[in-house]
Design a protein around this nucleic acid. Structure first.
Lengths: 323, 323
DNA sequence: TTATTTGCAAAAACTTTGCAGTTAG
DNA sequence: CTAACTGCAAAGTTTTTGCAAATAA
């Protein structure tokens, strides 16, 4: 009995068939569902073997044809890829971020990852050649840790990319928030002007609240999918980029003391929140609709709200005459 | 009659055969030579067709087997690649820098390029996974300018990668030297201390001489291979990296005037030369032995010599009591 | 002499095509 | 009812393997 999870995908596929004047069949649905419930990089034979467990009658050719349909640009549920072993493989594409692969040439395991820095470089190069890119691929071949140490490759667990991406997005947001918290703590400690000090002190519990929210989201996710903490990193981010957003207190430092009045402190805090918001918004734009993208968008919005809140506070202070 | 150019490669291959206890045959030599004299990404059929022009008797299987030998790690003359069209292809590897591809999905033209920035990112990611990399591949698929505008794809010229790399390496070195020249000119203009001014002024003709040397090397190269200026960029470098090596004069600036005594000026000039030398040396290390690598090494050495020269001058000044 | 090569043919592996019967719209 | 789909078989591709004759060391 097909259809249960994957409602979105199946509906999307049916729409695609209707648009194309193609017919909806039991076989296509079965193949689609089998494909969706299996994470990884599947060859036609892989899918065929799985499908056959449920229906002996289905032929390889049908699997082939269906997978090719799924990989059509207008359908966009699967992506046809090559991993260097001469086989055509298919991987999930619908609401999965565009990613790269690290491939073990011994056990043929493929680790997926994304790295926005790579994409940036590629965009620059493409532009120089006046190329209209359709897709790109970064593949690294080598020997994985397990194979090198001859450990038994029992761990054939296939994780759900969407969840891993969400995990990494949460970790990245947390990393940013922790940096902010550190910054505010230091700023509160070192600022001598009482107004400025108060501004920073007030930020601390707010950041802490935000951090605990993110942490509980992460916990939820981990509980939803046990073993998720074991899955390899999917999203690689440059911590330097986060660091660069933190304002440089040392510019206002004299003998370990920071001189900022409340107005300057508010400006600095707003600036930090705004650049975080903009960074995560720009980051989110890189991805197709996924949990990870939504986490980034969410984070960006929260930071923006925080900005507004600080601005309001500032205005009300000015109105009430408090410098 | 084989053997004429490619002496190095053929000798390397024969050594490989001896080490492996394999036999040297007329067919292998012919296939190797045909492969070497043809730039590009050749399928077995491609090479077979070319080889057959010279000897009708040779079979495809021999071509297959020989190309596989050439692509063996211990031989390292060819590299087995996939360009997404389902064919196994072979490209030059011996003394060719490791590169990536931009592939037109319409005319199947593949542009090669290298980009050290990409390699840096990949190294970082690899390290996180404790992977022992053997090779990596960055492929971008899309539609090229010519195909998009439906221009006739007559330009099927295959350039010699080694020469293109050399061209780009020279251009990169020139770019660096021009920046240095600009810096010295500005420094000479703005420095008020006569000693410091003189140091910078003295650098100008030296830089100019170096630039004209590099330019004449570039001209030689261009004359050697006509149409080389038309070949697409192979080496992509981050101009920002070069820029960051130039010292920041503004730190010593007051009202458009720079205050540096001769000692400080010498230090600054030495610093600039040294960082350029180190940068290019580090850069050169990334590549296998090629003309391009040698250009970088050469450049690094020259800059180092320049450093020494400046240091000597400084010492002789100090000895002669001139501040 | 002897182990490797060659080139043919045949097989294997992967993918596409043709076709008659079946089925969704 | 008709156009699309399925599953089989058959054919096309690309790559690998087996083997007898040829050949380099």
């Amino acid at each position: 009995m097909p259809v249960k999870k994957f409602g979105k995908e199946i509906e999307h596929f049916h729409n695609f068939l209707r648009r194309k004047g193609k017919k909806k069949t039991y076989q296509k649905d079965l193949i689609l569902e089998t494909f969706l419930k299996t994470e990884g990089h599947l060859s036609v034979e892989d899918v065929y073997a799985l499908v056959k467990k449920r229906d002996k009658k289905i032929g390889v050719v049908t699997v082939f044809r269906t997978l090719l349909s799924l990989a059509e640009e207008e359908c966009g549920i699967a992506r046809k890829i090559t991993l260097g072993d001469g086989l055509t493989r298919f991987e999930h594409r619908y609401q999965h971020p565009y990613h790269h692969h690290i491939i073990c040439t011994k056990c043929h395991k493929a680790i997926e990852f994304i790295c926005p820095g790579l994409d940036t470089i590629q965009d620059e190069i493409i532009q120089k050649y006046d190329f209209t890119p359709s897709y790109h691929r970064f593949q690294t071949y080598g020997i994985c840790e397990e194979c090198r140490e001859n450990r038994h490759v029992s761990d054939n667990t296939n994780y759900d990319t969407e969840k891993i991406f969400a995990r990494d997005a949460l970790k990245m947001a947390l990393s940013m928030e922790n940096r902010c918290l550190e910054f505010f703590k230091k700023a509160a400690r070192c600022t001598v002007d009482p107004g400025g000090k108060k501004v920073f002190e007030r930020m601390i519990p707010e950041e802490e609240k935000h951090i605990s929210e993110l942490n509980s989201k992460l916990d939820d996710l981990m509980q939803q999918e046990k073993g998720l903490d074991q899955a390899p990193i999917f999203l690689h981010f440059d911590t330097g980029e986060l660091e660069r957003m933190i304002p440089d207190l040392s510019k206002h430092e004299t003998r370990g003391e920071v001189n900022l009045d409340s107005k300057a402190a508010i400006e600095m805090a707003t600036q930090l929140n705004r650049s975080a918001s903009e960074f995560f918004k720009k980051y989110a734009e890189k991805f197709t609709d996924t949990l990870g993208k939504r986490i980034f968008m969410n984070f960006a919005v929260q930071e923006e709200n925080h900005c507004d809140l600080i601005r309001q506070r500032m205005e009300s202070r000015q109105l009430s005459g408090v410098q």
